[in-house]
Each structure stands twice: as structure tokens, then as C-alpha cells.
Write a protein that binds this DNA or RNA. Structure first.
Length: 755
DNA sequence: AGCACGCCGACT
DNA sequence: GTCGGCGTGCTC
């Protein structure tokens, strides 16, 4: 090629081009300007995806704003602007109110715009997949298939094919293509049958369901007065924004209240969005809704494939899906005709995203409901102190359900003071005696211990050497089953040493108690009982949790040992004894929210057990038996505890009475982290006129994690406004800091926990 | 976050 | 003499 290729001259006149501000998926709190010819076949609008050249690569961004060239207040020179490669959508991906929500999140969380889009949109769309609904289809048996099966034309060996045909006869309306997996049908056999024309596939839309004359299927559940009045109260607000807290004791029938309200919403041709905690989202939740309503119900959760999520998302967007059930991120499902948002177990920590862009789905849901002009219903037996504080501020209306709906027997609580008690593998004599009694009376037993693995430490009996993770500065947890050590902070693992690496003796002893060891000693103490363990290690397999739950309900398990994951969602009617093996950690924790979490755990755990004819018992083992939280929960209930805990937060000037933000920085080099946060503090100090107090910088509770040192700088205030002002004024300068480029950092609003 | 440019150590 | 280490800087 000959040299001297001229750079293409763009005719930069205001008639020909407009400027499009694009949010690009990079961790920068700014948008980038691009040019677009005015005669481009698609009119650019906020919320459309565009392909753009960015640096030396190309990226997919989202249009944030469109400006005409003549009255733009650009601070960059036009020559620097590049043209958009192409617009990927012919209409905005999300509704007006979601765009407003996006802008609110940008202001409130001070997060990079690209990151917010990444949580708002399904990954398939972020990768540039077309926003097209693929038609769903159903499989049905043909007449030929029916005859062939009856006349025994099917080879004996074709077991799977026989299964398919039988299932299709059982389901005369056919089986949806995306459900065939649930029937354990291999696709190859299905294709084989289709080739013979024994089965056929028909393409349909979910709208067929929705236009059915009877949208809600009858229910024979009798409601009590409290439930009726709760439904009445909320249904008077279906046409406007109101936030409700449905504070209902366990088994007070919250779900039935949800269902009746959803029924009204569907009758108004509107959609219901239901958020559940991570674990609660089992196939049964979906089935319960499907059994009740003859409308299209879709789910949205991390267990689904990208394509499945996109399909659910698109059905929510076009209004086909009437009920959307999902975990945290489902909050951002676009709704054509929004009717209500329900957050079940609103206190649950899974509603807070703890990776990347950190937000609280509960808080954002209230803002979204406000923008959509619909009610939002937060339900819990142990509400977050944040929500209860909002009740007293008048931001949320509280509805109480105090009666047990089904005639459940009340629980008996007992605190076992461990001080000076002889212990047998973490179990007091008192507890062992109780377990024995309950087993004799044919009751099932649930034991909670929030520590998986065999023992939290493996150490040398002779020289005291203990095995610790170099990357995190914490002890490895010993896992007996496959004889390995695992760091529960960074996940790294290694083979367990049998000889002390320091003194070469062979006296390595596990110290402390985890679920694995507890299960072992239970098996030893109760050799005749069937014992099972449920934690992250035993439920790796996808259906494992489901299998455990079914076998407990079927009475095939006598004693169930598990971590907190067992506390969520499942009710076991035959369980009569629930024990919290070690409440000490929660009561002595450095986290000021620990008592709140512990109180919620006790409340939730208690909800797992009992029914009318089998009174339940809850035992709590602790060295801190005099702790006021325990007394309040046991004698006066969660509400009473919450009241005094809220008062303590006022005294201590802690959230929700005050508000927090946090700068966190991490780097393999501790000095870099310290320099950066010192610089940040200096910049923040320039605005000492604002009523924001700075605390720190200080090391995070676990300073070292995965080879990186982590420090934090807290901002505390009683005025959210001033906090936001301060961040608005300073973040620009903080981003430009030289020390900022040497660390990974972020600012977090309303931080919880340490990680 | 990517990605490239750029200036110092161990290899064919 | 080169390959490549990751520090620094930029992205419309």
C-alpha cells in the first residue's frame, strides 16, 4: 500500500450529527460522547444498546442521553469524538421508570454507570444478543404415537421413549419444551420419536394461558381476620405508591396474603414482581404459584442459563408474564403493566449484593415502586431494623399478623448456659438428654451450627504449630471427609498434613467444632438414629437440597445437622426440637449488627419446627446466657427485641439512626492502600463544614484476604443529603488521585458486614 | 476494567 | 543481543 492515507474528515456540522452520551462498561463514573449521523435509520434514545469503538477495542454501551450538536455544552473537542459503529436495538430495552431508577441509583450509590447497567440488564443483552423472544413450544403425542404405543410397536429396549409417550398421555395439553428436562427425558429420544411422527412440537405463546376465562384457581384456605384486614389495607393502595411492612409471626399465613393480593393485581391485568431469598427459590415456590393462577409465571435467578433468563426477562417486558418470581436481581425485570412488588423475608441478607456494585434490593425496590406508582410489600417474621425504623419515621405502614394461621402449637424456648458445664463434642448433657427424649417421642431433631467443615483449626499437639492460609492470614478449616484443609475466606485448599511441618511429630489434632464433626459425634451418640448433614459441602449437587428436604419430610431422617442454609424457607412439620449449638460467635462479634442477625436467625430457625399436635422446643447453647437479646426474643418476641435494639443504635449513633458510607481499598501492597485512603481523607477533610464524620482509615476485620490488604474509611452522618453532597464534591478528585491507580477501591453506601 | 506503551532482568 | 516482567496512563 502507498503511504499517505488521509484520515476521513467528518463533516461536523450541526445538521448532520447528533451527540450520543454512552455509558460504557468500565469502572468510571462518567459517560463518553459519540457522534451519530442524524440520518441514521434508528433514532437514538436512552436505554438502547450501541456498539462503539473504545480505546483500541470495541464495546457494547448503553445510550444515556442524546443531544443535538448545536446546543451541547461539550467540554471535549469535537475532533476527539468517534462515531458510533451501530445501534443494536430499535427501541429502548427498558421502560421510562427503569431509566429513572437507573439515574437514581447513579446518584445514590455513586457508582460507575456502566456497572449499574451491568446489574440492570441480563448478561445475554450485555453481550449483544438480540432482545428477541424465542417462541416457546409444547410437545404432544400424535394419534399415530398413541396407537403405536397401544399396539406395542415400541421396542422393549426403548425405555426412555416409552416414558415420554406415557408422560405425554398423562399430560393431554402437552409438555412445554423447556420443561422436558424436569421429566428426565433425553432430547435425543424425543427427536427420535418426532422423526417417526409419534410426537409433535407446537409453537405457542404464554398468552394462550392468560386469556383463559378463569385466571385464579379456587382455594379453600380460610383466612383469619388479621389476614383479611391486611389484604383489605393493601388493596386500597393498589393504584399508588405505598410501602407496607407485613410483620407476621411464623406460620401467620403471609404467603396467603401475597397470593390474594397478586390475584387482585392479575384481575386488573397487571403484573406482580415477587422477590425471594436465594435459597427459598425452589421449584415448589414456582409450582405453588402455578397451581394457584392460570397465568404465565416466570422465574429469574442465577441457576438459570443466560438464554432462559433473557426469555423470562422479555416475557416480563412484553407483559406476557403476569407473575415474576426471582432473587435479588429480578428486581430489575422490566414490567409492562406493573401492579405490585413483594419482597418476602425482607430482612434476608441475600437482598444485598455483596460483589461488584453493592446495592440493597429492598431499598431500591421502594424507590422503584415509587417510580412505578405501585405498592411494595415487605414481609418478614423478623424485620430488619432499617424497615422498622422506616415504620416509625412514617415511610412504611406496618401491618401485623400476630395469630398463627394454622393452629400451630406454641414453642418452648430454653437457653442452656454452658458456663462450667461438662461438654461432649460441643453438646451439653442437657442437650443430649433433650435429643434423646424427642427421638423417643418420634420427633425429628434439627441442629444448627453455622460453621461447616470438621474443625476450624488443625494444630500440632506437641509444638502448637497450626496450619494457616498465607493469602488470608487465617486458619485453614479441616475437612475430614476428603482429608483436606480449606480456607473459608479465599476458598483455597490443600492436602491436610499428617506430620507437623515444624516438629515432624504425628500429633496433628483438629480443634473446635464444625458441622462435619458434629454429625460424626451425633452418629456416635445416637447410633440408631438416621442422621444427615446439610451445608454447602453436602449440597453441591443441584437437586441435593431438594432431596434432603423430601427425605426429612418423609420421615427418613431423625437428626438433621446443618448451617444457616437450613434456616431458610423449609418448614418441617415433624421436627419437635431445634437447637442452636453455638450462639456465642454471634453474641460476641465485632459487627454491631450481630445481635440483630442472631435474633433473626433464632426467629427463623424456630419457624422450621412444630405443628398443632406436636409442640416444639427450641434450645440455645451459649456461654452468654444472660444476654438481653436472648431474654427479649424468648419472653417478649422479636418486636420487643427490635425496639430496644433500635434504642441502642440511637445511643451509639449507628444505623439506621445515622447513615454510613465506606471507602474500601485493597492491594497486595499495604502501603499503597494506606497512602490512598490517607489521600482520600485529606480530600474529604476540605469540606469539614459538612456534617459528616470521618472514622479511620482502619484495617478491615479480616485485613488480608486472597493476598490483598484491605483498609476502610467510614463516613458517618445524620444527614444523607450532606453525605451525598460530600461525595459529589470529592469523588472526581479522588478518582484522579495518583494513589488511586495503585489500588482497587470503591465507595459503598449503607455498607453492611466486612467483606 | 482492558489494553498498550515502556523501561529493566534471564535466556536461545 | 531478544523475550517478557508488570508500573503507568488512557479510553469519547
Amino acid at each position: 500500500m502507498v503511504a499517505g492515507i488521509e484520515a476521513p474528515q467528518l463533516p461536523l456540522s450541526s445538521e448532520n450529527y447528533c451527540i450520543v452520551k454512552v455509558a460504557v462498561p468500565v469502572p468510571l463514573r462518567r459517560v463518553f460522547d459519540y457522534l451519530l449521523p442524524e440520518n441514521y435509520p434508528i433514532t437514538p434514545q436512552p436505554g438502547m444498546r450501541v456498539q462503539i469503538p473504545f480505546g483500541r477495542t470495541t464495546k457494547i454501551g448503553i445510550i444515556d442521553e442524546v443531544e443535538s450538536l448545536d446546543h451541547s455544552d461539550l467540554d471535549t473537542q469535537l475532533e476527539k469524538l468517534k462515531p458510533i459503529t451501530q445501534i443494536l436495538d430499535d427501541s429502548p430495552l427498558i421502560t421510562e421508570s427503569l431509566i429513572s431508577l437507573y439515574r437514581w441509583m447513579g446518584q445514590y450509590y455513586h457508582a460507575p454507570f456502566g456497572e449499574i447497567w451491568q446489574t440492570l440488564l441480563p448478561t445475554a443483552l450485555l453481550k449483544g444478543k438480540p432482545a428477541k423472544l424465542s417462541r416457546s413450544s409444547r410437545w404432544t403425542i400424535t394419534d399415530i404415537g398413541r396407537e403405536s404405543l397401544e399396539s406395542g410397536k415400541l421396542a422393549k429396549s426403548a425405555v426412555k421413549q416409552k416414558l415420554i409417550l406415557e408422560q405425554l398421555i398423562k399430560n393431554p395439553t402437552g409438555i412445554a419444551h423447556d420443561k422436558i428436562k424436569d421429566f428426565d427425558i433425553p432430547y435425543s429420544s424425543l427427536k427420535n420419536l418426532a422423526g417417526k411422527k409419534w410426537v409433535s412440537r407446537d409453537y405457542i405463546t404464554d398468552n394462550d394461558k392468560n386469556i383463559a376465562s378463569q385466571v385464579n384457581l379456587p382455594s379453600d384456605i380460610q383466612l383469619n381476620d388479621e389476614q383479611l384486614s391486611a389484604i383489605e389495607t393493601v388493596s386500597q393502595h393498589l393504584d399508588r405508591y405505598t410501602a407496607f411492612l407485613l410483620f407476621g409471626v411464623t406460620a401467620s399465613g403471609k404467603t396467603e396474603v401475597y397470593l390474594r393480593l397478586i390475584q387482585q393485581v392479575i384481575e386488573q391485568q397487571r403484573q406482580a414482581l415477587v422477590l425471594v431469598p436465594e435459597i427459598g427459590l425452589t421449584p415448589q415456590t414456582l409450582r405453588r404459584f402455578e397451581q394457584r393462577f392460570n397465568v404465565s409465571v416466570v422465574t429469574l435467578h442465577s441457576g438459570m442459563s443466560e438464554q432462559q433468563r433473557l426469555q423470562s426477562w422479555l416475557k416480563a417486558k412484553n407483559g406476557e408474564a403476569k407473575i415474576i418470581i426471582g432473587t435479588r436481581s429480578a428486581l430489575f425485570a422490566p414490567l409492562k403493566n406493573p401492579g405490585i412488588i413483594i419482597i418476602d423475608e425482607e430482612h434476608d441478607l441475600s437482598f444485598r449484593q455483596q460483589q461488584g456494585f453493592r446495592y440493597s434490593a429492598r431499598d431500591v425496590a421502594m424507590v422503584r415502586a415509587n417510580l412505578e406508582k405501585i405498592p411494595v410489600l415487605l414481609g418478614s417474621a423478623s424485620p430488619s431494623l432499617e424497615s422498622l425504623s422506616n415504620v416509625s419515621k412514617g415511610k412504611i405502614k406496618q401491618i401485623e399478623l400476630t395469630q398463627k394461621a394454622q393452629n400451630t402449637a406454641s414453642l418452648k424456648y430454653r437457653v442452656i448456659d454452658l458456663k462450667n458445664q461438662p461438654m461432649n463434642q460441643g453438646l451439653s448433657a442437657d442437650l443430649i438428654k433433650s435429643i434423646k427424649q424427642h427421638l423417643q417421642q418420634k420427633g425429628q431433631v434439627l441442629l444448627f451450627l453455622n460453621r461447616r467443615g470438621y474443625a476450624p483449626v488443625l494444630l500440632c499437639h506437641q509444638c502448637g504449630w497450626s496450619s494457616s492460609c498465607q493469602r488470608c492470614d487465617t486458619h485453614y478449616t479441616y475437612h475430614h471427609q476428603n482429608d483436606y484443609l480449606q480456607c473459608h475466606h479465599c476458598g483455597s485448599s490443600r492436602k491436610a498434613p499428617h506430620q507437623c511441618p515444624q516438629c515432624q511429630c504425628d500429633q496433628m489434632v483438629p480443634v473446635g467444632l464444625g458441622t462435619e464433626r458434629l454429625t460424626e459425634s451425633i452418629k456416635h451418640l445416637f447410633p440408631d438414629a438416621k442422621t444427615a448433614r446439610i451445608d454447602r459441602d453436602t449440597t453441591r449437587r443441584k437437586s441435593a437440597m431438594q432431596d434432603f428436604v423430601s427425605s426429612v419430610k418423609a420421615g427418613e431422617i431423625d437428626i438433621l445437622v446443618g448451617t444457616q442454609m437450613l434456616a431458610k424457607g423449609h418448614h418441617f412439620p415433624d421436627v419437635t426440637l431445634v437447637a442452636l449449638i453455638d450462639m456465642d460467635g454471634a453474641l460476641y462479634s465485632a459487627d454491631f449488627r450481630a445481635p440483630e442477625y442472631a435474633a433473626q436467625l433464632i426467629t427463623q430457625v424456630s419457624g422450621r419446627a412444630g405443628r398443632a399436635d406436636k409442640p416444639g422446643e427450641v434450645l440455645i447453647q451459649t456461654h452468654h446466657a444472660e444476654h438481653s437479646m436472648l431474654h427479649q426474643i424468648i419472653h417478649s418476641g422479636y418486636g420487643e427485641f427490635a425496639n430496644s435494639a433500635l434504642n441502642e443504635r440511637v445511643e451509639a449513633e449507628l444505623p439506621p439512626h445515622t447513615f454510613l458510607a465506606m471507602f474500601q481499598a485493597e492491594s497486595p501492597q499495604m502501603a499503597h492502600v494506606k497512602y490512598f485512603l490517607a489521600d482520600v481523607k485529606q480530600i474529604l477533610d476540605r469540606y469539614s463544614n459538612l456534617k459528616v464524620e470521618l472514622l479511620g482509615p482502619a484495617p478491615a476485620v479480616y485485613v488480608k484476604k486472597a493476598g490483598k490488604f484491605r483498609y476502610q474509611l467510614f463516613l458517618q452522618t445524620s444527614s444523607r443529603n450532606q453525605l451525598h453532597q460530600l461525595l459529589e464534591l470529592t469523588l472526581g478528585d479522588i478518582e484522579k488521585l495518583k494513589s488511586a491507580s495503585r489500588v482497587r477501591w470503591r465507595v459503598e453506601i449503607d455498607p453492611v458486614g466486612d467483606s
